[in-house]
Each structure stands twice: as C-alpha cells, then as structure tokens.
Design a protein around this nucleic acid. Structure first.
Lengths: 138, 138
DNA sequence: TCTTGACTTAGACAAAGTCCAATGTAGAGT
DNA sequence: ACTCTACATTGGACTTTGTCTAAGTCAAGA
C-alpha cells in the first residue's frame, strides 16, 4: 500500500495533507478501522482534520477500488485496505475482532443457475462468525 | 410460522396485543422488513404501538431464534422470519431487493483448519450481490 | 506568483437504534 | 370475577453513524 499515493496522483487526485494522513492510517495489511477510528488516528497527526473529510476520503478510496467497505454487524462500517487480494472475514461474535481468511474454492460456484433468479451476480462475500481464542478463555 | 405464538407462550412469553401484531406482520416466508417497516405495518392494526416496543419485540424474537437479523448494506437491519431452514441471501446492488437462496454444500467446509486461527466457528453467512432482472432493463 | 476549481471545515441535519421513568396490563393466585 | 405484581409498553430524550451545505482554503498549472 506504500505506492498508493502515487497511484492516486496518477488518477488526478489532488494530494492534500488530509488525504495523505488518511491513506497513512490505512497503511498496514490487517487493519479494519471504523470511520471514527480512522478519524481519531488521523487527528493524532493532523488535529484539525474534519470528520466530513475522513468520510469523503474513505468514500473516494472505496470508489477507486483501493479500499473495501466491510459491514459485519450492522453497526459502523469498517474499512479494509487489503483490496488487492480477494479474501473473506472471520469475526468474533463477542469482541468483534476481524481477521482476513481465504476459503478454498469460489463461493459463486456454489449457487446453481436456478437459484440466481436472473440476477447478474457480481460477487459473493462470506462472513464466518465464532468465538476467538481470547474470548473463549474468559 | 402460524404456530409461532404457541411456541412463544410455551417459552413463558406474555402474550400482548403488540407482540401478536409484530409476529403477524412477520408472518410470510419471503419477507425482509426493516424495523421501521415492521413498525409502520404494525401501526396499521394497532396505531398506538411504540417504536421501542417493535425494537424490543424484534430483539426478543432474534434472541429466541425465531427470526434472523440480516444486515446487507450497512443501513437498517432487516428481519427474516425464515429462520427454520438455513439459507443465504441474494441482494440487488441497485434496488436492494433481497431473495433467499440455497447454495450447494456447506460454506463452513471451505475454510481450512489453519485459516481458523483457533476460533470456535459457529456459522457462515454468504451474501451474493448483483443486479436483478428488473434493474438490468433500465 | 496568480488564479481557479477542487478540497476542507464546522456545524446543522438525518436515519437507525437505545435508554429510561412513568404508566398499563396479562395471567397467576384467590 | 377480582386483585396483585412482575413484566411490558409508552413517549421522548439521547446516542451513534453518516450526509449535506455554505463559506473559506489551498494544490498545482499557467
């Protein structure tokens, strides 16, 4: 994700301090922050950054396909910078921790033609839910 | 779902007019209402029913395993009375329409042991996304 | 360095859901 | 049938998450 900023500039993005900071916060492969968490971490480096700017920047990154939106629980959406390699998510039903996982096979193949009701299906997302080792101990 | 009320009474539920109306709204197999839609439909029959009551009742039905919570889009959760037969969902990315679908095989089996990170995994939910025939025409 | 259109800001607004104190009532016990 | 009380409901305030807008700011091309 270190060359993200170059890729964005190539696409005509105006490179502002705010956007740089948001991109830096999302740097790292196994991170699944909410918009507010991104905002808090961005504000550590750039205290006056506005919530709206974080929301705007995240939406742009999602539209550009650089970041994935993940909503596992009907609460705040989370943002996943690991958009290059398709993967699924494993969520702890107690503490909410999220891990990237890689199931075998293609989930799309499991849906027979007569179960597609004429939809042009583009993707399948799988969410595994269970209790993580940490929460299991207590 | 017609014997739902008996099952609930057997479990010690107090049978109030409000709960009866919420259960009746959810009767029917291919229904995926939001809490507010449930509230609106319940209010047709029982105008003074409070939003909080609908939320309470829905949460109880979910806790009892009689109704499933589905959050496909990070917006309002939807409530699915078809909790007896496991199934997955197919969602139109334009209009949001939801259909129940039945993929072959067990998605849990696709996650290898070394990808489980010690979690005690309880379930896998699959969401297929695509454009429905209706939206494809326009 | 000047200019300009794109970007950011603060705060109001909106949607979805939770919480609480006051009030009402289903059903057990008589 | 009547009473009692624990449980359920109500309405409204509140919280969380996210969107919108008008006014100000600034990156980058000329």
């Amino acid at each position: 994700m270190s060359d993200l900023l170059e890729r964005l500039r190539d696409r005509g993005w105006r490179l502002t301090a705010q956007r740089r900071v948001v991109a830096e916060v999302l740097d790292g492969d196994h991170v699944h922050y909410t918009a507010d968490e991104v905002h808090a971490r961005a504000a550590d480096r750039l205290p006056e950054i506005a919530r709206a700017t974080v929301y705007n920047t995240l939406s742009e990154l999602v539209a550009l396909g650089e970041v994935l939106e993940v909503s596992t629980d009907g609460r705040a959406k989370r943002y996943d910078p690991n958009a290059r390699h398709t993967h699924q998510h494993l969520v702890c039903s107690r503490c909410g921790t999220i891990r990237d996982v890689h199931p075998t096979g293609d989930p799309l193949a499991a849906l027979p033609e007569q179960e597609r009701y004429g939809f042009a299906i583009a993707e399948a997302t799988v969410t595994y839910r269970g209790v993580c080792p940490n929460c299991n101990d207590s």
